[in-house]
Amino acid sequence: IDMAVAVCDNAKTQRYSPCNAMETLLVNREIAGSFLPKIGAIYFRKGVELRCDPASKAILENFGPVKDATEADWSEEYNAPVLSVKIVASLEEAIDHINTYGSHHTDAIITNNLEHSERFLREVDSSSVMVNTSTRFADGFEYGLGAEIGISTDKIHARGPVGLEGLTSQKYVVFGHGELRK
């Protein structure tokens, strides 16, 4: 729980405007009652507006003001101190939510379950997938590619004659132990 709190704080509040800042927080219902009050207190203190599904609202509204999430919130890239929050019943529900509403840019899971982390890495359709670290590490410079001049979540960048190399896309996989971007 403590690592998840630190990573989720960093992923959202280290900088609000980059494309690798967290925009939706999905929380397993088994830990929601212990996790959400801790991370919610941090977000409320830092002025992050929380847009919640009914289950997360029932927990978080006891600690600060929250808004009801709309369908549009699940796919919104806020680039601001705004975060949508949803409680999910299972890893499968989380993966389905991400693949349905996500930007396919960067997604992360915080877990101590190896089977869950492996399934997440395999099944989440994003250009960067991470385990136990902040999404803020998804960056060309951080990946050793030099200064980032752009990012694409497309799977094909072909123009003109295309060979096998031009039909290949990459998926970056990052493993961590609670690392935070400074």
Rank of each mutant, 00 (worst) to 15 (best):
N20C: 12
N20W: 10
N20L: 11
A21F: 06
A21H: 07
A21P: 09
A21D: 03
M22P: 06
M22Q: 11
E23G: 14
T24W: 02
L25Q: 07
L25P: 05
L26K: 01
L26I: 05
L26R: 01
V27S: 00
N28M: 04
N28L: 03
N28P: 00
R29G: 13
E30L: 09
E30T: 10
E30W: 01
E30G: 03
I31G: 00
I31Q: 00
A32M: 03
A32T: 01
A32W: 03
G33S: 13
S34C: 01
S34W: 00
S34Y: 03
F35T: 04
F35K: 03
F35Q: 04
L36I: 08
L36W: 04
P37C: 02
P37G: 04
P37E: 06
I39L: 09
I39G: 04
I39E: 02
G40H: 04
G40A: 02
A41R: 15
A41D: 15
A41Y: 02
A41T: 12
A41K: 15
A41H: 13
I42K: 15
I42G: 06
Y43G: 02
Y43N: 13
F44K: 10
K46N: 15
V48S: 08
V48P: 10
V48C: 07
E49I: 14
E49T: 15
E49A: 15
R51H: 13
R51E: 02
R51D: 03
R51L: 13
C52Y: 05
C52G: 05
C52P: 08
C52E: 08
D53Q: 09
D53R: 11
D53L: 03
D53C: 13
P54Y: 06
P54K: 07
P54V: 13
A55V: 13
A55K: 15
A55M: 11
S56M: 08
S56D: 06
A58Q: 12
I59H: 05
I59V: 15
I59F: 06
I59G: 02
E61W: 01
E61P: 02
N62W: 00
N62L: 14
N62Q: 15
N62D: 11
F63C: 04
F63G: 12
G64V: 05
P65Q: 14
P65L: 12
P65T: 13
V66A: 11
V66K: 09
V66L: 08
V66T: 15
K67G: 03
D68L: 11
A69L: 01
E71H: 11
E71D: 14
E71V: 14
E71M: 11
E71K: 14
A72S: 14
D73A: 06
W74R: 12
S75V: 00
S75F: 02
S75A: 12
S75P: 01
S75E: 12
S75L: 01
E76V: 10
E76F: 04
E77H: 03
E77F: 04
Y78S: 09
Y78F: 15
Y78R: 11
N79V: 10
N79P: 00
A80G: 10
A80H: 13
P81T: 07
P81C: 08
V82W: 02
V82N: 07
V82M: 12
L83F: 09
L83A: 06
L83V: 09
L83E: 09
S84T: 08
S84Y: 05
